[in-house]
Nucleic acid binder design. Structure first.
Length: 426
RNA sequence: GGAGAGAUGGCUGAGUGGUCGAAAGCGCUCCCCUGCUAAGGGAGUAUACGUUAAUAGCGUAUCGAGGGUUCGAAUCCCUCUCUCUCCGCCA
């Protein structure tokens, strides 16, 4: 949520900022509603004050043994007036809240303008795409060749956008996950964390996935519905929910491996072949809970941490800053890391590192007791993929392919592969 | 799944219809005293929202959540959630 005080006090600035995203914010309608809220709230609170006063004097009169009948008649219609005022106020407040929950985060000043991914700005590149002296295969062909990636089997079980993996390939994905977690824990000071894969609506409201993006989520039909997490960002970030941290507890840095579940509604026709875009995929996620003073630096460090993984795997990549039209709902600023895929001859997203500032914290009531003032203030939340394991597997397959169709095991993964040098057909 | 107990401020813990936002203790902050890493005395110490130039006042809300009864609810009633104990079941 955007700070309601800011929204109210500097509506034009907020509207202009949101307009950069292509988000049309009806400031006039909002201000009219807000004006109404203010009046209703003042009225309601005055009535409540009146009621409290009379109740108090009735209590005092009764204590003195006086006749309270006349006092009771005097407040006769108060209850009804109050009830009317309260319900009107409640209606307006929930309308306002619906508007506020639907507004995306304010953009950081250094988010570039732009309408689509075409306008994202490259920050840096690392590594050189490898030169092949044979015809390059994509991961689908390679996976079939080593008899490890089976989309037909998956579709018989679950339909489109699922994969079955076997043997060395399945193990390679597990090796990637282990390697990533070990790296972040040992070198980047992350705490390995295990979290629920099913969460309730309020957790998703906190991260900004709800109420606007329900269609992207899988939901159970149980009496109290659960949602399958679309990313470990949801449970990890909610570790800060309803808490007041001491200043010296922050930053907290959590790393978790989880499967991620996405309905991919609205992505029909995109990446339908292969394992790029699935309903279920594995990811190692990084989340930081921080003070406002820490978040900017941590954002850079988190991006570096994700880059480290790719560097150790010797996978060429580039880092881009997402433009205003491409950045996510809850983020103030996002770096995407795109890995080189020889099979597609282009860079594809493998990590997304965002600073959400206090946007999610406000929804979650995540706070920290300021070291200076002793007062609670909102924490900053950051999340990043460190990195997507399914896509990392694709990247390793395509970048490490050999002329005979086998896949060489990257050096850093060998210890996780039982000394295996290459994944090939059994 | 069955039976029972419970949920109060940073913590412990009183409080069963009326000046209770809430006793007391602990912790923390400030002051005083004390020639010293002790003890004692005093004051203060929740959050959100509204109003406001104001982190000053004033008002409103909050004692797990939601609803109800009442002029008035931490206290009574209903529903739900969570925690604990015992039993059952189970990876």
């Amino acid at each position: 949520m955007i700070d309601p005080k800011l929204l109210r006090g500097d509506t034009a600035m907020v509207a202009a900022n949101l307009a950069r995203r292509g988000f049309a914010f009806d400031a006039d309608a909002y201000l009219a509603l807000e004006e109404k809220r203010k009046q209703l709230q003042v009225d309601t609170e005055a009535l409540r004050g009146e009621r409290n006063q009379s109740a108090k004097s009735i209590g005092q009169a009764k204590a003195k043994g006086e006749d309270i009948e006349p006092l009771l008649t005097a407040v006769n219609d108060l209850g009804e007036r109050l009830e009317t005022a309260e319900s009107a106020l409640q209606t307006v407040q929930s309308d306002l809240q619906a508007i506020e929950l639907g507004l995306p985060n304010l953009l950081d000043d250094d988010v570039p303008n732009g309408a689509s991914e075409e306008d994202n700005v490259e920050v840096r590149r690392w590594g050189e795409p490898r030169e092949f002296d044979f015809d390059v295969k994509d991961h689908i062909e390679l996976g079939a060749g080593v008899d490890g990636l089976d989309f037909d089997a998956a579709s018989r079980i679950s339909g489109a956008r699922f994969a079955v993996m076997r043997g060395g390939l399945a193990r390679l994905q597990r090796a990637l996950i282990q390697f990533m977690l070990d790296t972040h824990v040992a070198e980047h000071d992350y705490t390995e964390t295990y979290v629920p894969y099913l969460v309730q609506a309020h957790a998703l409201l906190g991260t900004g996935n709800l109420p606007k993006f329900e269609a992207d989520l899988f939901k159970t039909t149980t009496e109290t519905p659960f949602y399958l997490i679309p990313t470990a960002e949801v449970p990890l970030t909610n570790l800060g929910r309803d808490r007041i941290f001491e200043a010296d507890e922050l930053p907290l840095k959590f790393a978790a491996h989880t499967p991620c579940f996405r309905s991919e509604a609205g992505s029909h026709g995109q990446d339908t072949r292969g394992m790029i875009r699935q309903h279920q995929f594995e990811k190692v996620e990084l989340v930081n809970l921080a003070t406002s003073a820490q978040s900017e630096e941590l954002h850079e460090a988190m991006t570096q941490a994700a880059e480290t993984v790719l560097q150790r795997l010797e996978l060429p990549y580039r880092v881009i800053t997402l433009c205003a039209g491409d950045i996510g709902f809850s983020a103030a600023k996002t770096y995407d890391i795109e890995v080189w895929l020889p099979g597609q001859q282009r860079y594809r997203e493998i990590s997304s590192c965002s600073n959400c500032r206090d946007f999610q914290a406000r929804r979650m009531k995540g706070r920290v007791r300021s070291a200076d003032t002793g007062k609670p203030e909102l924490i900053h939340t950051l999340n990043g993929s460190g990195v997507a394991a399914g896509r990392a597997l694709i990247a390793v397959m395509e970048n490490y392919q050999q002329a005979d169709g086998s896949i060489a095991v990257p050096g850093v993964l060998k210890r996780y592969m039982g000394g295996l040098e290459a994944v090939s057909a059994a």
